[in-house]
Amino acid sequence: MPPYKQLPHTSDIRLSIRAQTREALFLAALQGMSALLQKGFCDQQNDSQPEVDRIEITAADTTGLLVDFLSEVLTRCHIRKVIYCGIVFSELSDTNLKATISGKKSDHFEEDIKAVTYHEADVRINENNQYETIIIFDI
C-alpha cells in the first residue's frame, strides 16, 4: 500500500499518510506533497543538478513539527522553484527536526498549494503500530 493516499475533500486536498516509523512518516508526507506539486516528479530520471537544503524546525509536538516542516519545505519550493523528494535526518524527536532535503528544479507546479494546514492533523500510532496522520493542503 502506498504510504499516502488522497481522500475526498470539498474544496482542498486531504492526504492520509501512514508509515512504520516517524522518519518514514515525514518522508511519506514530503513525497505526498511533492506528488501534488507535480505527479510522478520524484519517480522520474532527471540528470539536472540536485538542489540540497538544510532545514531546522522546532514545534510543541510531533503534529506541529510535521506541519511546520511541510510548510517550510513548501515555502522553499515556491521560492527556489524546486520540488523536494528526499530527506536525510540528523535529528528527529517529538519537537525538533534537523535534516537535509534534496530535490530538483521544476519549471512548473500542477497544484497551487497555498498552505499546509493543521486542520485534522494528528500524528499518532494506530492499532497496527504504524504512525499515521491526515494532512490537509489549502489550494
Binding site: 510543541a60 511546520d68 515555502t75 499546509v116 494546514t117 493543521y118 486542520h119 492533523a121
Partner: peptide, 24 residues
C-alpha cells in the same frame, strides 16, 4: 504571511493563557 504568523501565534499563545479548541 498567514503561515508565518499562524506558526508564531501557536508558539506564544499560551503566554496569553489562550488554548483554542482548534489549532487553526
Amino acid at each position: 504571511v498567514a503561515t508565518d504568523y499562524l506558526r508564531l501565534m501557536m508558539n506564544v499563545m499560551s503566554e496569553y493563557h489562550y488554548k483554542p479548541r482548534d489549532r487553526e
